[in-house]
């Protein structure tokens, strides 16, 4: 379901259709969570990471936060041939730590500060030593929060579901 990020049963696939390795699947999951995070949430994550990894390498920004558009594609009839539907604004940023770790961010909207922060967090979460701890402390709770937010939004419509009933008539005993 949208808005909730990646479901537990969704391992994801590479561009060639092959299943992702556990390392790739974990990174895909946090990239998706970061893309939907607010600036405040990203700052909290950054603070948590700072607390665990003291001295950080200065990131080398390869691609400054950049606002652009992506052509949003749809399918005829929902399942058929692809067509170019319309465009959507997006922001991206890529940076690299001195040890070669690349961090990137792609998110809808015009959000330069968020993109820079998310790219840095992406690089930092690839920390071979602390990665798993950091994910448990930052990504897991935010993923749960996002899933809950999406669930609440959809749940608002549940009371508007039509409960059909047929009027009971003589020849139709209850």
């Amino acid at each position: 379901m949208s808005g909730s990020g990646i479901r537990d049963d969704d391992v994801g696939h590479g561009r060639d259709g092959s299943p992702l390795s556990p390392v790739q699947a974990a990174r895909r999951r946090w990239l998706v969570v970061l893309a939907r995070a607010s600036l405040a949430e990203l700052e909290v994550i950054r603070g948590t990471i700072d607390g665990i990894i003291g001295d950080q390498m200065t990131p080398h920004v390869l691609r400054q936060p950049e606002i652009g558009m992506a052509m949003l594609r749809g399918r005829m009839g929902g399942t058929g041939q692809v067509f170019n539907f319309s465009e959507i604004t997006l922001t991206r940023c890529t940076l690299q730590l001195a040890d070669g770790r690349l961090g990137c961010a792609y998110m809808t909207g015009r959000r330069k500060n968020e993109a820079r922060l998310a790219a840095l967090i992406d690089a930092l979460l690839q920390d071979p030593e602390h990665g798993e701890t950091l994910i448990a402390l930052t990504i897991d709770p935010l993923a749960a929060e996002q899933a809950e937010r999406a669930r609440r939004l959809v749940a608002r419509s549940v009371p508007t579901k039509v409960e059909f009933f047929t009027l009971v008539r003589g020849e139709n005993p209850a």
Binding site: V23, H60, V61, Q96, G100, R101, L102, Q126, P128
Partner: peptide, 13 residues
């Protein structure tokens, strides 16, 4: 690029 161990990239503008 698969994350760790990538060669260092150059900045653009």
């Amino acid at each position: 690029v698969h994350g760790q161990g990538s060669p260092l990239m150059l900045e653009g503008f």
